[in-house]
């Protein structure tokens, strides 16, 4: 790829991405007083994470079944209140084992 074209588009891309984050974060500093607006911004993190996780989680690995088992393990561990690290490691391990099994078993 031509370097001049690359650097020009990279600059446009990076500046846009940065400003989308920095402008609201820098200018919007006051605490919201209105209880409904406040509640909205309290809910947003959880609805964003939920929408990002399912169903995308099921397609995040090469194996739908492996990812499905990993998701169930994640839900059980998280429901039991395990730490972020334990849940993440458990999810990876379960997915890895199932994916590995699938490579050797005929289903």
């Amino acid at each position: 790829m031509d370097n001049r074209y690359y650097f020009f588009l990279l600059a446009v891309m990076a500046v846009t991405t940065y400003l989308v984050r920095a402008v609201p974060f820098t200018l919007f500093r006051r605490k919201i007083k209105n209880p409904r607006v406040k509640a909205f911004f309290e809910y947003i993190p959880y609805t964003v994470l939920s929408a990002m996780t399912f169903p995308a989680m099921l397609y995040s690995t090469g194996s739908f079944i492996g990812a499905g088992v990993g998701s169930v393990v994640a839900l059980i561990l998280a429901y039991r209140g395990k730490s972020l690290l334990i849940v993440a490691v458990g999810t990876c391990a379960a997915t890895f084992l199932v994916s590995l099994l699938q490579m050797f078993l005929p289903f």
Binding site: G62, A67, A74, L75, L77, A78, K82, L84
Partner: peptide, 24 residues
């Protein structure tokens, strides 16, 4: 590939761990 893709799901596991306790 089985190693790299199995690592990719961990981040979602972490999301579940953030959201579920709050839902309870």
């Amino acid at each position: 590939a089985v190693v790299t893709t199995s690592l990719a799901i961990g981040i979602y596991g972490m999301f579940v761990a953030i959201v579920l306790p709050v839902c309870r």
